[in-house]
Amino acid sequence: MTLNGRDHRIDFFRGLALIFIFWDHIPHNPLAEFTVRNFGFSDAAEIFVFLAGYAAVLAYGKIAQRDGLLVASVKILRRAWVLYVVHIFLLAVLMGIVFFANNHVETRDLVQEMGLQYFLSNPQQALTDELLLRFKPNLMDPLPLYIVLLLGLPLVLPMLLRKAGYVVAASLALYLLAPVWNLAAQEGGVWFFNPMAWQFLFILGGAAAIHGQQPKAAQNRPLSRQPVFVGAVLYLLVTGLLALSWRWPQFHDALMPLWLGEYLYPISKTNLSPVRLLHFLALAYVAAKVVPHGNWLNNRVARQACRMGRYSLEVFCLGVILAPLADMLNALGGDGFVVKVFSALMGVGIMAVLAAWLDWNKRLNRK
């Protein structure tokens, strides 16, 4: 199979996920009430990892078909190395920003909230753990996960391009072992995003990229008569109602049977609980069916989101830096509603400006 061009809807949803991640990372941000995590079991992290797998397989799969697997593997490993260097640099910048902000905010201990107390109490071990990807303060978990997933991609890419079903089956088996298998983190802990679990979502994204290149038979039945679509919509409605009920414990207790609550909770994000995974897959399936290709991607807002999605690494790193700055601004502003909304929107604006500059710089280099 020959892999072709990219689906610009993928860029749009990656950009949207970056905005949601940034808003979710700002404590007590009013705009975070409108992100996907409030309306179901999954959140923007699932979107980001799934589309990362989609984009990686689409990009490096084309390189493998054109230039060979060796060239593709070298480029994947080079990309992983760049991410590793970025991770170390970003952590140093983040610590500097948090220490600076902590000196100006008297009502809270931002160092403790960001998980940086370990560095102050044991700096030598923290530096070693940073190099081994074991020291991951708040906001820093997605990047080490992506590094590990990329390092494993050359091992599965050849089979993924030929027999994606076999790779998905093997990935599922590894996912089922995730609750008893995780990587070590600082102070005897484990990774917040268990790579053994989240690799399944990454592989599913890659398999979706390959499946999207295959010719599809025309589907004449309306969506309301397609059982999978109807089932996905019903699951989204039920889980959305349940997630909203968490705001009102009495209503939730009346809605949730005791036996079902014991089975359902806790909904693990670390090990990508099956109900989280199923919620995201239902969301992705419905979005793929309902959101069309078309001119709507050419309007100004959609173009900005697509541009942010195309430069997801740079925009994500900037969001990690801006989140504690926005938190500091909110605290200095007395945590007022207007200040919180302003800081959240200003951060997205800065992220959009970075993406626009990177896009302009790329076109300039081509010329």
Rank of each mutant, 00 (worst) to 15 (best):
G165N: 13
R225T: 11
R108H: 10
D109V: 05
L176F: 12
Q219Y: 00
L139V: 10
L177N: 03
F135Y: 14
S42G: 13
G189N: 01
G188D: 03
L234N: 05
L127Y: 12
A288V: 10
D67G: 05
L201W: 02
P274R: 07
G15Y: 09
E187W: 06
N103L: 13
V291N: 08
A173L: 15
A323P: 08
T270Q: 15
F99V: 08
I321P: 00
V86A: 15
L237F: 08
A288Y: 08
A164L: 12
F192E: 10
Y60Q: 00
N138W: 06
I26T: 11
P123W: 02
A254N: 12
H28T: 09
G53E: 02
V98E: 06
N298L: 11
S171T: 01
L223G: 08
L204I: 10
N330M: 15
V348I: 14
I63P: 02
R9M: 14
F202E: 07
D43P: 04
K367V: 12
F119S: 09
V353H: 00
F50A: 10
A55C: 12
F316W: 14
V286M: 05
L174R: 01
V156P: 01
D327F: 06
V57S: 03
V167C: 09
R134N: 11
V98S: 09
H293D: 13
A305G: 05
V233R: 00
P227K: 01
I21V: 15
N4Q: 13
H293V: 11
L332Q: 07
L174H: 00
L3M: 10
L133W: 03
Q199D: 07
T2P: 11
H252F: 12
L151M: 09
R14T: 06
L143W: 00
V74Q: 12
Y265C: 04
V74P: 00
F342D: 09
Q186M: 13
H8R: 15
A287M: 15
L354H: 07
A209W: 01
L91Y: 03
N122P: 02
I267M: 02
V230A: 06
F20H: 11
L237W: 02
